[in-house]
Design a protein around this nucleic acid. Structure first.
Length: 898
RNA sequence: GGGCGCUUAGCUCAGCUGGUCCAGAGCACCUGGUUUACACCCAGGGGGUCGGGGGUUCGAAUCCCUCAGCGCCCACCA
């Protein structure tokens, strides 16, 4: 049976069926009635139309590692899955599809368009959910939620209405970020500043009357967006600015429009920037809007929703797109001699985070959430240590954002999303506004039935911020909510710290009365080898499913977990998948073969427990148990502190470096029975126990291969049907033994040194050699006695003795303990040939050395050749010198110069 | 303009509370390998003034200062 296992692990045959079995066994399901303590993670819901990319691969694997680990620790675990309707993003995708057919959403009308999106979402949506299964995510799929679900929609309404009732939601005309392509308002977070090379135009605004202090009949203002001058309402200067003091209170004649606007004074103006005089456009600039309000100035909106100049501007500019208008305005001013000069100017220009169009600030009527009252307890949660970030520095970013929080614009002029639960009575003379949890069909004030619902939808994050409790049934007091809220760990990307994480904290406190999670773990970004973010448009992404297919899910998981320290970006080369994922696949294969080794060598009889073999366990057994206990402690601590990369690497090191490289080798003759039956039983017991516990430690990162091997082990501790629900190991202090570990370190050094000498002196691989150890202390001596067999197997050493024969020729080295080891080589290698070879080698190197030195002695080479070439030659001299010295030492040893 | 992070072997990165993980891992490279778990392997090897400079300390890759380069976040300089 064991012999039939192939020497290569094939994940593609194993993973799918194993995953299905796990699911069918119900291991992923969370039971709200369980008496066990809960551990909960909510998934950052991917866009419903998304496909899995490496960012998900990383983020979701990290969550799965935590969930699997806690599950094994005996917690009642819930990993809550689901998807996000992703308002703008999804609407854009469907609109693009329509555009390909030459249609727009307006052709369809609202209802038909929303139906269209729904059918698109049903058809392609949740593909990503299936893909998460391929990488082994152990979510409770029965609980999959969608932010536009009936239940979640109810939560959204409840929240909107209750915030309105508390006076925390208001509606008004304010300046907001407007995307002229998506035709909707955006929140401040959705307008992403990008450094842009622009121009700073210096415009002359003629004074309505007279001249300034220096006799000029005009004032110069500086602006990056000259087209907005058509909406100017004033010019502002700093009150202390001597240059302009006399002008305050007077007027300028606004060019191209014939309007007269006042010159006002305001502290906001920086006298150092530009000319110290600022044109004020409250309709299209947030700062100007604020200033306008301070001074009671009117607002002039001069652009259409598409950001073309509207009817309010002079004829020649009407209908021009804002950038065409910019050229036209500049041209017109130039012709009138009013363009003083144009400077190059780089500044941050806000862009729509979904379509990258330059955002146009615009005044319009929108809904807002008053954030200050929500932020205060969320800030306190962090400051009081109830909310913790990994890495910690993100806490400061969170704190800073909370301290400077601004009101949240939540209305979107989209069709895809939660409709705002507000109705307006259209009955003549009524005009009642009804904010309601239930749909409204008649006006409660006048009884009229001409009520219309607000046409806008809510920001997609207005449903996301409820995710940790809306998915558990809130506002109902469900058993799941009681059991699993608050959740424990949130693992996500730093990009959505404000969009999502911060707002969830506020919502959790406000609506459920408790922070939604106590630990926030921020993972890094997956980038390509050139440091670019992986993206579909750049074509530099890696398809995780392709990786799963070629290398296995475990390889993918091991690679992303081990390769990303918390908050640190990970670089993966999409041109060389072998380099990136080969090591993970090799790790899985090594595990497979360790299992295969055990099956082939342990035999079919029942395997005794460690207790049963008792004191007959040996030196090597005690060593591996000691190492295992330490590895267990280290891995558990790493997981507790969210150093998942360290946990993965520690597991790798222990399994490969200690268990496979040393213990398995040391135990071979014993398993074959060559050292007696008692020794064999001790080895069987230890090997199976250690392998069992090691597989548990490695399971969270590489679940498929560990389960596959574990299922085949001859004996399991306890009756767990699966490694998934097997118990997580505890360190066993009684196993830890510093002296044994130290002894093995010395043995390893000894074997390494012998191997080293053998290689250096060209001893044939299979050739056995004698070993003399001189000056060893008692400890080393007894170690040598007990490790005779290991030395023979691993270093091909026989006849270990402490006697040094006078005049013997061979190789020697000194160990850290001070003991000297000597390998007699007479009769082992052909001494004459080796001497000859060494002399030849030395002569060759000396020749090269001399040549290089001659080169360096050449004045013109040193002065003319590039410095690095000369340096390379110098390095060669040093390196040749060292090599010659080493070979000469070897040669002297061979010539018997003791 | 503020704040933060990074800079360690050719490449990708670990290195947690200054002192046996203190110079490491994987990959790449070179040499050797029919030791029946594994060539997706085994053994050995070369390669780094831990970005530069200064300081604290018995001791610094690790703490402090400073300079340089890269990156991120925030910000109303038109």
């Amino acid at each position: 049976m064991a012999e039939t296992l192939p020497p290569q692990y094939d994940p593609s045959e194993t993973e799918g069926p194993l995953y299905r079995w796990w699911w069918e066994q119900g291991f992923f399901r969370a039971d709200p009635e369980s008496s066990r303590e809960s551990y909960t993670i909510v998934i950052p819901p991917p866009n419903v139309t998304a496909v899995l990319h490496m960012g998900h691969g990383l983020n979701d694997t990290l969550q799965d590692v935590l969930i699997r680990w806690r599950r094994m620790q005996g917690y009642e675990t819930l990993w809550q899955p689901g998807t996000d309707h992703a308002g703008i993003a999804t609407q854009n995708v469907v609109e693009r599809r329509l555009a390909n057919e030459g249609r727009t959403r307006f052709d369809l009308g609202r209802e038909a368009f929303v139906d269209e999106v729904w059918s698109f979402v049903r058809e392609t949506g949740s593909v990503i959910i299936d893909q998460l299964r391929a990488i082994g995510c152990s979510c409770d799929w029965d609980r999959t939620r969608f932010t536009l679900d009936e239940g979640l929609s109810r939560a959204v309404r409840e929240v909107f209405v209750s915030l309105y009732e508390k006076g925390l939601i208001y509606r008004g005309n304010y300046i907001i970020n407007w995307c002229p392509r998506c035709l909707t308002a955006l929140s401040d977070e959705e307008a992403e500043p990008e450094e842009t090379a622009g121009k700073l135009y210096h415009l002359r605004y003629p004074l309505a009357e007279g001249t300034d202090a220096e006799g000029r009949p005009y004032l110069v203002v500086a602006t990056t967006r000259p087209e907005t001058m058509l909406g100017d309402i004033a010019v502002a200067v700093h009150p202390e600015d001597g240059r302009y003091r006399a002008l305050v209170g007077r007027e300028v004649e606004l060019p191209l429009t014939g309007r007269r606007v006042p010159i006002i004074a305001d502290d906001y103006v920086d006298p150092e920037f530009g000319t110290g005089a600022v044109k004020i456009t409250p309709g299209h600039d947030p700062n100007d809007f604020e200033m306008g309000r301070r001074h009671g100035l009117p607002v002039l909106n001069v652009m259409t929703p598409e950001a073309a100049m509207d009817e309010s501007v002079p004829g020649p500019f009407r209908g021009l797109d804002r950038f065409e208008a910019r050229r036209a305005v500049v041209q017109a001013l130039r012709e009138q001699g009013l363009l003083e000069r144009v400077d190059e100017h780089t500044h941050a220009v806000p862009h729509c985070y979904r379509c990258d169009t330059v955002v146009e600030p615009r005044v319009s009527e929108q809904w807002f959430v008053r954030m200050q009252p929500l932020a205060e307890p969320a800030l306190a949660a962090y400051r009081e240590g109830r909310l913790h970030f990994t890495p910690e520095r993100f806490g400061k970013i969170y704190e800073h954002w909370m301290e400077n929080i601004r009101d949240w614009c939540i209305s979107r002029q989209l069709w895809w999303g939660h409709r705002i639960p507000v109705w307006y009575c259209r009955a003549p003379g009524c005009g009642e506004m009804i904010v309601s949890r239930e749909d409204v069909s008649a006006c409660p004030k006048c009884g009229g039935t001409e009520v219309e619902q607000d046409p806008d939808v809510l920001d997609t994050w207005f449903s996301s911020w409820l995710w940790p409790f809306s998915t558990l049934g809130w506002p109902e007091e469900t058993p799941s909510l009681r059991k699993f809220y608050p959740t424990d760990t949130l693992v996500t990307a730093p990009e959505i710290l404000f969009f999502w994480v911060a707002r969830m904290v506020m919502a959790g406190i406000e609506f459920v009365g408790e922070i939604p999670f106590c630990d926030v773990v921020l993972n890094g970004t997956v980038r390509d080898h050139l440091g670019r973010k992986m993206s579909k448009s750049l074509g530099n992404g890696i398809d995780p499913l392709l990786v799963v297919e070629r290398f296995g899910a475990d390889a993918l998981r091991y690679t992303v977990v081990s390769g990303s320290a918390p908050g640190t970006d990970q670089y993966l080369n999409y041109e060389n998948l072998e380099e990136a994922f080969g090591p993970g696949r090799n790790f899985a294969n090594k595990l497979w073969n360790a299992g295969r080794f055990a099956l082939m060598n342990v035999g079919d009889e029942p395997v005794p427990s460690l207790d049963e073999v008792g004191t007959s366990i040996e030196f090597a057994d005690r060593w591996i148990l000691s190492r295992l206990s330490r590895a267990t402690r280290e891995i558990t601590e790493d997981l507790e502190r969210f150093r998942l990369n360290e946990a993965a690497l520690a597991g790798y090191r222990f399994f490969w470096g200690d268990l496979a490289d040393w213990y398995l080798e040391m135990v071979k003759p014993r398993l074959r029975g060559e050292m007696g039956e008692e020794s064999r039983q001790a080895a069987r017991a230890t090997l199976v126990t250690v392998l069992d516990l090691t597989l548990r430690l490695l399971h969270p990162v590489t679940p498929f291969i560990t389960e596959t091997v574990w299922q085949r082990l001859p004996r399991h501790r306890g009756d767990a049907p699966s490694l998934m629900v097997a118990q997580w190991p505890e360190p066993v202090p009684a196993w830890e033994d510093d002296r044994v570990e130290e002894a093995v370190r010395e043995l390893q050094e000894l074997i390494g040194t012998v191997r080293n000498l053998r290689a250096e002196y060209g001893v044939a691989p299979g050739q056995r050699v004698k070993l003399r150890v001189v000056g060893a202390g008692d400890e080393t001596a007894s170690l040598l006695a007990s490790a005779r067999r290991t030395l023979a197997d691993l270093a091909r050493v026989e006849d270990v003795s402490a006697e040094r024969v006078e005049g013997e020729v061979g190789a020697s080295a000194v160990l850290r303990s001070g003991a000297e080891i000597f390998l007699p080589l007479a009769g082992v290698i052909d001494l004459d040939r080796e001497r000859l070879r060494l002399r030849g080698e030395i002569d060759r190197l000396r020749g090269q050395l001399a040549g290089t030195e001659r080169k360096l002695a050449n004045e013109s080479f040193v002065s003319r050749a590039p410095a690095e070439v000369v340096q390379r030659e110098r390095d060669k001299v040093t390196s040749f010198g060292e090599q010659v010295e080493k070979l000469e030492r070897t040669l002297r040893a061979l010539e018997g110069a003791a």
